[in-house]
Design a protein around this nucleic acid. Structure first.
Lengths: 351, 351
DNA sequence: TTGAAAGCGATACCAA
DNA sequence: TTGGTATCGCTTTCAA
């Protein structure tokens, strides 16, 4: 590593390829090639250059590189304001998995409204190699800008747009499975606490549940909006109780609402699962807390993130990759928040 | 906005200052000045240029700008892997507040170990305008690199390093206040659930509590390590119960642990606050859930983030700004998890 | 296997 | 008030 004196001597600029090329007595282009492992460079030359680079503590300027290659190494993560911890967990995974591919993550926050102009502009200005969107809405105008400026888009747990790919958990199927579990356990009066009504995730889960019930000639005893957050789950349950629907099981389409359901029931002295079974979806961290111990379907976050990055990289490498939609099956997590069927065997394959 | 044909005609490159300068019949430098509102440019010229820029959908290349100005518009957020939602909430605020200042946030995840080399290198490579660090440890080597390469650093809720500034909540004082509240309510047997032992935040809170007790000639009936997470709070409480310390109040130095404390007590049939008062620190979102309704000290996240950005900007503008340490007082949130003193008036000023 | 030179886009300086 | 030009650091032709 270069010593401080030498650095300040250079007017506070860090070493560049030129610094190295001069020391090594070669051309800058040779340094560039050696550094990126171009096979044409002689072994010996390469070794020398690497040695010097290390010595002076060389670190490339990302901006210079981006300018000439057109790639920034940046992935945008666009997320709506939400208090669902699922998205924080996803971000954490994304940062880590993207890092392995030498990509960095920039967080772009879109409000609850459709994506603001400025967010999309940032994607373009920073020449993001791609972006992953989980916010509720991407206006067609925003999508259009991404497409025109060749910013690959992957929608996560959202409906794919014309030119974007999409990765999601098998929300419909996971939901069916959960309902079948409840039915197998003998439940007949099932209430559903729905999520934000304009997201495909919630809608798919609700449809999956409704269809699974319909197949047995049943329907939910009631369906209430839980707004995809804890307080919503709480209020929805209060409503269900107030209106005396008396369900024997409640399916909240995500865990954070399910936690609200459990707490609301507890506050009314209703025991879980003795009096009412509760199930959720996502398997967020707190779902496994003993207090809640939620039976739920775990979204395969790691796989979802990896596949998203794969899709982005395919698009980066070759612009005309066709849009794809990938569904990944979640895993059943059997916990104590619901009564278990006698015949558990048939569910073991989903665990 | 430019039509698609025109764009593809240009070989998929977006309009640049040159595109505009040609259309306007002026020099590129004039366009640059007009765009950034340089007062020397004639009103009319400027209007024309702005018009054209809008027409062609001009968006500057961040990389080109970074290269010449040396500023990227990027702020790094370095965070340790943690399941404390406080940091997610902080990130959310940061993204939003930084956005107002036209700065973007890049998330750099350092594991629980000391900051990896690669994280710091990213800061330098992308010429970050500054970074905010909340992870437990910044190795002196990493700090050195930041300093040498002129990346301003603000430590959030962490001990400032030699060349870094720091912003934190008044952890010590807030802790004193909470203990005084407990004492005023008549509690005498107070147990403390401590956090990660190598963070100044936890240590300060523990010291504040110990000192406040000592002032009345008391000391904690027991102090247990809760590892700053929910399960830790749960286990710590189980231990306190198992060892029959019989406290009449438990102070967990952060909310996520306090939630574990409440749940563990509940699981043992101990009522909160009737049998035992519980208090936390942070005021994370879930602290206000009716189920927990935690009395706590709210960290002033908005102010902390704003002041951090101020400090960074001061350093960006003028490199030799001296390091500063800022403590911002938190606000007391009185909720139902603890017995309240008869004399509430003296605490009203902190609410 | 290596070198020289051009060029990416925006800005800043020096002239005019 | 504006134009011309050099420059930031890196990569990529094209030559040698």
């Amino acid at each position: 590593m270069q010593n401080p004196d030498e650095l300040s001597e250079m007017g506070a600029r860090r070493p560049t390829v030129t610094t190295i090329s001069r020391r090594a007595g070669v051309a800058a282009s040779t340094v560039s090639r050696a550094l990126k492992g171009d096979p044409r460079i002689a072994k010996k030359t390469r070794a020398e250059i690497l040695e010097i680079a290390k010595e002076v503590g060389y670190m490339p300027y990302a901006s210079a590189r981006a300018m000439v290659t057109g790639q920034s190494g940046l992935i945008g993560f666009v997320t709506g304001g939400t208090d669902n911890p699922f998205y924080s967990e996803m971000l954490e995974v994304l940062v880590s998995r993207a890092g392995r591919r030498r990509r960095r993550v920039m967080v772009l926050h879109a409000g609850t409204e459709p994506l603001e102009e400025s967010t999309v502009e940032t994607l373009v200005q920073y020449q993001m190699d791609g972006c992953i969107i989980t916010s509720a809405e991407l206006s067609s105008r925003a999508a259009d800008i991404c497409h025109r400026f060749r910013v690959p888009v992957v929608m996560m747990n959202r409906v794919p747009l014309i030119h974007s790919s999409a990765v999601s958990c098998n929300n419909y199927g996971g939901s069916e499975l959960l309902i079948e579990l409840l039915l197998a356990a003998g439940h007949k009066k099932i209430a559903i606490v729905g999520g934000t009504q304009n997201t495909s995730t919630s809608l798919d889960r609700q449809r999956g549940a409704a269809d699974a019930l319909a197949r047995r000639g049943l329907e939910p005893v009631v369906q209430v909006d839980g707004q995809s957050n804890y307080m919503g789950g709480l209020k929805a349950t209060a409503l269900i109780i107030a209106e005396s629907h008396r369900p024997d099981a409640i399916y909240a389409v995500n865990d954070i609402m399910a936690m609200g359901v459990v707490d609301a029931l507890g506050a009314h002295g209703i025991r879980v699962p003795d009096d009412v079974s509760v199930i959720g979806f996502d398997d967020i961290r707190s779902a496994s807390w003993p207090r809640y111990s939620l039976t739920t379907v775990a979204q395969p976050i790691d796989a979802m993130v990896d596949r998203s990055l794969d899709l982005l990289e395919a698009r980066i490498a070759e612009n005309e990759t066709p849009a794809e939609a990938i569904h990944i099956a979640g895993k059943l997590r059997l916990r104590r928040s619901c009564r278990l069927p006698d015949d558990l065997v048939s569910f073991q394959q989903f665990v």
